[in-house]
């Protein structure tokens, strides 16, 4: 099994590991996620119907609504938070969203995480050091 190490920086500290759920599409939590069910609901989203709960969510960043952190907080309160987040290009919505989601989050990586990591890969996130270790599936 091949391993890849990505280096970036901490957005929210902590360490976690889990199976990756990867999308190349941006996410709007409000109007794109059912927080209580923990699934993506946006009509034309490639992850529609999939759950991020307990996985490491790898995505480019937030689009859309300013309801991002409101829904992120409900996701956490409902027990549906991902184990960690790897964000290609953090912005205002994903930054405050990660703070209230309270999960280890890294960004600004030396390789594009949505290219390098695939859904099902095992990912270890050390957000304090800004390091992501990817073990490719199979």
């Amino acid at each position: 099994m091949s391993q890849i190490v990505l280096k970036g920086r901490k957005a929210v500290g902590g360490t976690a590991e889990g199976e990756a759920l990867v999308t190349k599409q941006t996410i709007s939590t409000w109007g794109g996620v059912d927080a209580v069910k923990g699934i993506i609901t946006e009509r034309r989203h490639e992850l529609r119907g999939q759950s991020f709960a307990g996985r490491v969510l790898v995505f480019p960043s937030a689009k859309g609504s300013s309801g991002w952190s409101t829904v992120a907080q409900v996701i956490r309160l409902a027990g549906n938070a991902p184990k960690a987040m790897i964000i290609g290009e953090i912005n205002s919505l994903t930054a405050i969203g990660a703070v209230v989601m309270q999960v280890p989050t890294v960004t600004d990586l030396d390789q594009n995480p949505t290219e390098v990591i695939a859904t099902g890969d095992w990912v270890k996130v050390d957000a304090d050091k800004g390091i992501v270790e990817v073990t490719k599936k199979g």
């Binding site: 952190s69 912005n91 919505l93 405050i96 209230v100």
Partner: peptide, 9 residues
């Protein structure tokens, strides 16, 4: 401005 959210605003 950036797009702020409920908590940040």
């Amino acid at each position: 401005t950036n797009t702020e959210a409920a908590h940040s605003a």
